[in-house]
Structures are given as structure tokens and as C-alpha cells.
Computed example of a mutant assay.
Amino acid sequence: MFGDVDQELRRLADDSDFPHRDTARVAQRFRAGGRAADLVAIVDDPHACAMTDVLFAMAGAQRPWLNWVPMPSEAITNMADEFGSRIARGEELRLGQAGLSAAEPPSAIAAARRVAGDFEVGIGAFPAPDIRVPLRRGDYRIWRYDGTDPVAAVAAPSPEAVRVLHAVADQPWASPLSGRIQAEPLGDLPMDDLLGMLAHLPGPPDTERYRFLAVDSPTYWYRFLQPWVCLGILRHREQEPWATSTRRRVLVDLAFGAEDWTSDAALFALVTAAYHDPARRREVHDLVRARLDAALASHRLVTIEVSLARLMLITPGCTADDRAVAAAAIARAATDDEEPAPAPPPKRRWWRRSH
């Protein structure tokens, strides 16, 4: 979007005629050190104007959550991406069933089915803490389980809601600040439609970008749409006082509901709220840290753990301790990825060609 961001920031910081050169230097500092306090300093500029938002976007360019949503990392989505890519290239394949050694987020399973068809998923185990059990009981949920199978607990969205989603979410946000503004049409939708899109996962818009992703990473749209919808929830009934608002209750319930992609998507919307309104920052910081701590305390793989850690690093109020905990989570995941995977046991083929 900005070409060479670092070069442009250097130019602005050195331009004596540029009225926001000090803020450009703060943006440079964030890109060098990644400290959330620098992002806060940009957005809290006492002389803020439209250029402040541009500098905030430049600071966060090509950074997870600030400019793009982390890619899916689940085994089920890796399988579906390979399968869906082959279908998009013209192969005639049909997936009958797939097996998981342990449960994965329901949105990941739903996305895999949207890409590869309504195949049967066998789940070997639900290790503790059970992924199906919310961390906190709330009033809003989008998933229930029929035994081991996740099922949408809300009605499907209206066609109009899907149309609005496609219009709003055609491209990534330049920054959370601009994303919040762009999401306003989603906020005008009924809450039932917003929740319905989180669980029923409408397909992508028919654009060049998503035609490319259909070949490259077909499950990514489904990961990408949920933070957009959560930004819509953030804009829902904004006249309600924040502390008792429906939008706050929904986002907190999703963040601490059954472990899912919507957990970090909802937290992303809350982090966006914290940048927009300083009065929300302490609460949002504590929510993000509590959700990250819960992931780290699990004695099993939590596929959204790294994503939660990256959110922690950009949350207003992020402390040195928060940074250390988040960095350790990211480093641990990188180490796990480098270790050679054991050879899988022999098993029968999980897909078959159509004739």
C-alpha cells in the first residue's frame, strides 16, 4: 500500500516542513522495536489529524493483526488447503472423511468443510482442557457440539448481510483504526446476522484476490472474515454505554467461549476499541492477558496461542512481562515447528477421486 514504508518514514522524519515528523519518528521506533507504547503514542498525538491515522497504518504495515490476519495453522485447514487448491486447479476430487488425533477449533473444521465439501471428521481425543467447554459461561455463543461434531448454534445470516460483508471485507484493513471505520455498515446489521456469519462462514466475494486465494490458501478467507465481522459487532448499537452494551458482552463472551478462531477475532476488535477509546484500555489489556494465560496453561496444543501472543504485543498497556510471555509463546511454537514430525502410522486413504 505504501511501497517501501521504512524509507518513506525516514523521509518524513527528516522533512523539516512535515508537521508530524516527531510522530513519524515514533512510527519508526515501533517498526524497530515493536513496542505497543509507541503505537499508543501515535494514536494519542495531541495534534492528531487524518495524517496521524496514516502514520499509524505505516507503523503497522505488514505486521500481524495490525495489517493482516494470521494464517490458519490447523491440521484440518492444511489438509483442506491442499485439497481445495487441487480442485481449483481442475482436479475432480471428493473428500469422504478425515481424521484428527485431537480436536481443533470449530471454525477451522467449518472452514475446511466449506473448501473441501461436507466430509466426515473423526476426532481421536478431546484432551484437557476440553476445547468444547467455554472458559467463562456467557449469554452468547455461536457453537454447540453434537457429540464430537461442532454445529452452529445460531441461524444462518441473511443474503443482505453477506452482501454487506463482501462489500466491506474485499481487502485487508490498512490498520485497525481504518478497519473500524470501514466496518460501520456491518455494525448496522442485526446482531443475529453478525453472529450467523461467524458460524456459517459465507463464501468469499468473486474478486481477483479471492480467486487467487482459492488456488493458494482457500481456507484463509474464512479466517479473514471473522475479525471483520467482530469489528462490525464493535460498531453495533454504539449509542449504548460501553460497560453495559450488547457489543461488549458479545465480544467478551466470544473471546472466552469455546476455543475457536472467534476467540482471537473478538479480542482483536476489543484491542481496536482500546486504541479508539483510552478509557477501555485497562480492561482490554487484562482480557487479552487472561486469554493468553489460559492458552499457555493448557497441557495440549492450542492452535491460536501464537495469534493470541501477537495480539498481546500490540495491546495498549502491554508491559515488559506481557512481552516476555508473548515472546516465549512465539519462540516455543517456532521450536515446535522446526522439530521433525514423527512418521504417521499407516492408514487408509481419506479421499477418493470422482469418476
Rank of each mutant, 00 (worst) to 15 (best):
residue 184 E to A: 14
residue 206 D to E: 13
residue 206 D to N: 08
residue 328 A to C: 07
residue 101 S to R: 12
residue 340 P to T: 08
residue 31 R to M: 05
residue 18 F to Y: 11
residue 264 D to H: 09
residue 20 H to F: 11
residue 294 A to N: 11
residue 333 A to H: 09
residue 33 G to V: 13
residue 235 R to P: 00
residue 126 F to I: 06
residue 129 P to T: 09
residue 85 S to K: 08
residue 23 T to P: 06
residue 259 E to V: 06
residue 277 D to W: 15
residue 270 L to T: 01
residue 84 G to P: 03
residue 236 H to A: 12
residue 56 F to Q: 06
residue 207 T to L: 11
residue 75 A to D: 13
residue 137 R to N: 12
residue 130 D to V: 09
residue 329 A to L: 04
residue 322 D to K: 05
residue 335 T to F: 09
residue 312 M to I: 08
residue 43 V to G: 07
residue 352 R to I: 12
residue 69 V to R: 00
residue 230 C to K: 02
residue 124 G to W: 12
residue 93 L to H: 14
residue 99 G to D: 13
residue 338 E to K: 15
residue 24 A to Q: 01
residue 290 A to F: 12
residue 299 H to N: 14
residue 336 D to S: 13
residue 108 A to N: 05
residue 226 Q to W: 03
residue 34 G to I: 06
residue 89 R to A: 09
residue 163 R to P: 15
residue 56 F to M: 10
residue 3 G to K: 00
residue 42 I to S: 02
residue 65 W to M: 01
residue 92 E to D: 15
residue 23 T to G: 04
residue 286 D to W: 13
residue 192 D to F: 08
residue 267 L to V: 04
residue 284 V to P: 08
residue 228 W to P: 00
residue 1 M to T: 12
residue 24 A to N: 01
residue 270 L to H: 04
residue 205 P to D: 09
residue 196 G to W: 00
residue 70 P to A: 00
residue 326 A to C: 11
residue 317 G to Q: 03
residue 309 A to I: 08
residue 139 D to V: 09
residue 273 A to G: 10
residue 81 D to K: 05
residue 173 W to N: 02
residue 73 S to I: 07
residue 119 F to P: 03
residue 262 T to G: 06
residue 102 A to H: 13
residue 256 F to W: 07
residue 169 A to K: 04
residue 290 A to P: 09
residue 344 P to N: 03
residue 14 D to Y: 01
residue 20 H to E: 14
residue 170 D to A: 14
residue 218 P to Q: 06
residue 282 R to K: 15
residue 87 I to E: 03
residue 140 Y to M: 03
residue 173 W to I: 00
residue 59 A to H: 10
residue 153 A to H: 00
residue 44 D to K: 13
residue 100 L to V: 11
residue 188 D to T: 14
residue 188 D to E: 15
residue 207 T to C: 08
residue 10 R to G: 02
residue 45 D to R: 09
residue 258 A to K: 10
residue 157 P to I: 03
residue 148 T to L: 13
residue 340 P to R: 09
residue 347 K to I: 12
residue 131 I to K: 00
residue 189 L to A: 13
residue 9 L to F: 01
